[in-house]
Design a protein around this nucleic acid. Sequence first.
RNA 1: GCGGGCGUGGUGGAAUGGUAGACACACCAGACUUAAAAUCUGUUGGGCGUAUGCCCGUGGGGGUUCGAGUCCCCCCGCCCGCACCA
Length: 822
Amino acid sequence: MTSYTPADLEPKWQKAWNEGEVFLAKRDESKPKYYVLEMFPYPSGRIHIGHVRNYTMGDVVARYKSSTGHNVLHPMGFDAFGMPAENAAMASGGHPKTWTYANIDTMVDQMKPLGLSIDWTRMFATCDPEYYGQQQSMFIDMLDKGLVYRKNAVVNWDPIDMTVLANEQVEDGRGWRSGALVERKELTQWFFKISDYSEDLLEAIDTLDNWPDKVKTMQKNWIGKSRGLQFSFDIVGRDDQIEVYTTRPDTLMGASFVGISADHPLAKELSDANPDIAAFCEECRKGGTTAEAIEKAEKLGLNTGVKVKHPLDPNWELSVYIANFILMDYGTGAVFGCPAHDQRDFEFATKYDLPITPVFGPVKGEAAEGEAYVPPKADMVKYSKGFAGETVQTGEAAVDAAIELCESKGFGTGVTKYRLRDWGLSRQRYWGCPIPVVHCDDCGVVPEKKENLPIELPDDVSFDIPGNPLDRHPTWRQCACPSCGKDALRETDTMDTFVDSSWYYARFTAPRATTPTIAEDADYWMNVDQYIGGIEHAILHLLYSRFFARAMNETGHLPDSAREPFNALFTQGMVTHAIYQNAERTDDHGRAIYHYPEEVEERDGETVVKATGEKIKVIPSAKMSKSKNNVVDPVEIIKQYGADTARWFVLSDSPPERDVEWTASGAEASAKHLNRVHRLAAELENQPEQGTGDEDLIRAAHKAIVEVTLGVDSFGFNASIAKLYGFTNAIAKSKAGREAKRFAIKTLAQLMSPMTPHLSEEMWSLLGGEGLIVHAPWPVADEAMLVEDSVTMPIQINGKRRDEITVPKDMPKEEVEKLVLK
RNA sequence: GCGGGCGUGGUGGAAUGGUAGACACACCAGACUUAAAAUCUGUUGGGCGUAUGCCCGUGGGGGUUCGAGUCCCCCCGCCCGCACCA
């Protein structure tokens, strides 16, 4: 008898697949195509068990689709530009390029033993000049189409990474990577015109039927559409106006003051004349931007002495305040305050003793005292100082009526605004894609000629001083102006690395092309049919990619049908692991001590440190982190149990969208189970030829086909695995004859093959299956075998189960009823 | 504050409005063994009972229904996302 030795059989079958070029993706118009993609990794140096879960899910889909007659594209690459490479270079004196490519080699070596059905011939890294050169070429195309522009803007400056961050990359006022408090700085930057696509990106969300609602909602909120009235207040005593935007024009008769941002042009003008105002504006800008700071921040205002006229009553004058809570980059940077119906305005008005005039109240009863009355816009309210339409109506209707009325009176227009800002892409870093433009004294900013692409990064750079090494490189900047030929200087900013990941999915369709894409390949392979990755990319990466697909369509690099690039999205959960924290002591600095799993054990129902017996506080299901000593290394797991066990485990128990906790006992159980399955196949020839219950076993096999297929089809891998356990138990217990068992075990091997491909190949060959199991078509259940002759039905009285009876399937209803009522 | 999700045994988790707890972990018992490991078999939501069996049970309270873990309303708790957004 042969025993189950993954260390031997896994490499054996991987070799067979490689030699047969089984996973090589070729265009084949005779088959339906299926493009499966997992979000590509950053080459940090080691694969993580989370990667294993992500890629295994993709692999299950890829292998299953392939066995159901699809021509599958399942590629892998690396998102290879970015800060960590530069940080490593600064720390160890190496070069980001060396570091990155060495990491990629290591990670590929770690991934290959997993037996993923990847077409490795398509692999690339975004730091390959062949890739980023094409990105530069597209940048120039986008410049031509007006999809990229340069402007002077106040930007988020990360003082640790010494670079600019996009709005999306600032979290709680801190850089998403460095964690440094972000500063505001004025710089000339490149921007993608993503805001031109606000409506398109928003509307199309509703067509994404196979995306999680959660992600769709997050994107909708991020785009942030609102409809309101934009109008101007005439400033008293001068020929000038303050423009404001409001989503509640129905509260115009409750206006109490006008507030402007400290960065508003009027505030700047007043600052120049009055040092007190200048000091106040400075104070406003300093305020922290963390959630906490905003929560606690006092509403500060300064009466400028400027007055404006109310548009509906020229005799009604309102004071203009500079206020610290008004943002220059939303709306017009100026608002009118209606304290009766806005809590923030209420607090402001109370503090500065401004009038609070309600314009509506509840239909029944009175509004509460001491706070603003803010009902949902869809609610009916009773207007006492309304100026448009019915006395009793919904806020929504009143807003519409107010906009219409104001438009007809000739002040203000109804406008739609979006929160989405243009995407600032300039980064003051070395390890990124150089922006392919040249600064010429005579011609200004000129795009590089396409024949000069790629503009490659120079290798001879140093990282001993902060800042961008491209700025201080002796020769790299110097070039000829593409327009007039005179001496000119290159742009030294590089692109945000999110640009690199915004189109890699398209590049996989023709990874070696000398143009960004090739029409026939893109037409055939796009869209991605199933995209799989972490929820953390719900906004940034996915929104940018949706924008880029549109931009690539407009620059002729993707077909119309690929403007929305991902047909289906699945966001998988993390692999977590318990943390073992010492409950009795901390280290010399008062920090918690964490123990490795192998340092602790269970003793009398308590978890203690083996060596010392100290009690342990177990924190279950925590994100893996090196500093918490709870990281599971996939390489070790594969060494110990084999890839199939690792694959089986990460798919079992928890639904794929939820976190799964890695436990040693669970991993061991998976290994045991696969051993058992292997034994079924290996010992088949010892089974007696004749037995009993052949038909029952064959029926069980057909039922398993239906149930497992359903799970695989709907991302219910844990459900499929539960059914496979059940089916395995049924085979093990069955007394059926050898050929019935052979059929059942071959079916089991096939149903398991997307999850445990090596073991399945081995079983297939042990059972005398023809060729490789990867080439075998997915089993189809025989409907006739699914129908039972007799059926067991529960007898319920008032919904409670009282008894059960087993009757022939075709027994008439009346007879069943008679039987039950007896 | 706004938006979304979740709450089921000791644990992870199953259940198109129709037998709650599939499957697995863990625990316990038994078989095999000199012994252990491995393997196999069985038990395991709570309570009552010798037993056929009965009662209770899906965060709490109410409702719809012949029937609710599932649908509706209120409350509690946890998680995630967004947020001086005018």
